[in-house]
Amino acid sequence: MNALIEFQQVCKYYYMGDTTVTAADHICFQIYRGEFVAIVGSSGSGKSTCMNIIGCLDVPSEGIYLLNGKDVGQMNKNQLAEIRNELLGFIFQQYNLLPKLNLVENVEVPLMYAGVPKGERRERARAALEQVGLGDKWRHKPMELSGGQQQRVSIARALVGNPSVILADEPTGALDSRTGREVLAMLQDIHRRGNTVVLITHDNSIAVQAQRIIRLEDGHVVYDGPSDAPEAVVVTPRAAGGGGRPA
């Protein structure tokens, strides 16, 4: 079986004046269909860079990123936009809903860019809101909802286009621990229904909710393995880098 997401020696450099910052340093990993993977790391570890590259918001400086077997690094902006639309569902820390649109209109946005006709769009968006338990609130504006509810809307928006990968960037970061747990439970539920979920977080206690953890430090992968292994949550010394491959 081919990997859904494959990083081959992916590097990312940022140029700030004269200095070059290496945000990702020859990162390799593969994520398969149906996995629930957490990419963990502290600030500056390169997890945001990984998330941007996986999310096709950015392309690698070096190395190859294959999404569904296609080399994303070779694509132009329009093709990247299409990939984001068709294959990826984003869940952001700040929800990133559009404040002027009501909930169903917010959920419709990816379908609109996919060219789904209006009637079908509305139907599918309502169904997605139903799935996250907000079917009766579809006329509300995002600001009228609690943080947890807003995050559920953004989950509905991520799911509505049936993407191959759900990419969640610190989805509980702005929530209290109880609603955070609810959102995590929802992600686990999405995973159980067969979706591939990639969770990006700095928080070990959240990362362990995933099946597998990829730990990054200073742009390197320092651990890659099941989340229930003892070393998964221990910040390993850099010398131990590389880590194992998934079973």
């Binding site: 902006k77 329009n78 936009a81 984003f90 559009l98 946005v109 860019y113």
Partner: peptide, 16 residues
Amino acid sequence: TREIGIRKSLGAKERY
């Protein structure tokens, strides 16, 4: 700007 970023992340092409 943020709205534009959100729309782009959701698949809006430049021409849209």
